[in-house]
């Protein structure tokens, strides 16, 4: 049972995300800030006739807020009937990986450990698999 992954890049690190939750990849239009929302929320944006919640992926991983502006690349994912746009720097490719991801070792930063489900190997390099559900989760998701 193989699984499709979307490989993208944030803050110089490549990561993979299960492709079945991904709807599309778009460039953001205006992003409207949402005061007092979770720190991972960069704002809301219009996607065709829908409103998506833009997630500051970097903040969700290591707590440091990224500058997210128009023309930011967003991976649109649907979770629990809500549409999210996950801000990333680059989107590489979709690839197929046959076996289940390996567990992350303790050497990884706690931020990455929290949002990921494991590691897959691609072209000889190890890539972290992110769990979009933990990325978009609210209050408790940001490590100090």
């Amino acid at each position: 049972m193989s699984q499709l992954y979307l490989v993208a890049e944030i803050a110089g690190t490549r990561f993979a995300m299960p492709a079945d939750t991904v709807e599309s990849v778009v460039t953001a239009s205006d992003i409207i800030p949402v005061p007092r929302a979770a720190p991972t929320v960069a704002g809301i944006a219009a996607l065709r006739s829908k409103v998506i919640t833009v997630i500051d992926t970097r903040a969700a991983i290591n707590g440091s807020k990224a500058r997210i502006a128009a023309s930011q690349l967003l991976i649109v994912a649907k979770l629990d009937d809500f549409l999210y746009g996950l801000a990333v720097d680059k989107v590489h490719d979709v690839c197929e990986y046959a076996t289940a991801p390996r567990k992350l070792g303790a050497a990884f930063e706690p931020g990455w450990r929290r949002v990921s489900t494991g590691i897959i190997e691609l072209d000889g390099a190890a890539i972290v698999v992110l769990n979009p559900a933990t990325l978009v989760a609210g209050s408790d998701s940001v490590a100090a």
Partner: peptide, 12 residues
């Protein structure tokens, strides 16, 4: 439309 939980946590 309902907003995402991470937005709703603002409370207002």
């Amino acid at each position: 439309k309902p907003a995402a939980p991470s937005v709703m946590q603002a409370g207002f």
